[in-house]
């Protein structure tokens, strides 16, 4: 899934700030400590430095490739495959918290 939330603009191409790191951590739902922020920012800066090398290649007339073997529109029959269905027991077997045959999740809506 393509993420669409915007990230604070960082001006220098290959330097990533801790502010950007905090924002990405929020988007990606990755809990990080403030001690990790600086280390991550430095690591991303190194990595983006390598990625920035791609700018040297002219791709103005090149189409991007998303699928390398040329398959297109592979669809399955619109039906139920009973061989793949889980029983309720199987579906719940790995959930940490269950109640009366349901998976228990954290409340995300207000009580009213």
């Amino acid at each position: 899934m393509k993420k669409t939330s915007s990230v604070p603009v960082h001006t220098k191409t290959s330097v990533m700030s801790t502010a950007v790191v905090q924002h990405i951590a929020k988007l990606a739902n990755i809990p990080i400590t403030s001690a990790e922020e600086k280390k991550l920012a430095d690591g991303f800066t190194t990595t983006l430095g390598v990625v920035d090398q791609l700018k040297k290649l002219d791709t103005s007339t090149v189409e991007p490739t998303h699928q390398v073997t040329g398959l297109q529109n592979v669809l399955r029959d619109d039906g139920i495959d009973r061989d793949r269905m889980f029983t309720q027991e199987q579906a719940l077997a790995n959930a940490l918290h269950t109640h009366n045959g349901y998976i228990v999740v954290e409340q995300i809506l207000d009580q009213e």
């Binding site: 990230v7 990405i24 951590a25 991007p64």
Partner: peptide, 28 residues
Amino acid sequence: KRRIMLGTFTLSKGYADKYYVKAQQVRS
């Protein structure tokens, strides 16, 4: 953590063309 976060960054609005699309073009 590093990979998830950098991937989130390179796919985010304003950066997807610069990083992700560019990479897929060089892939071509």
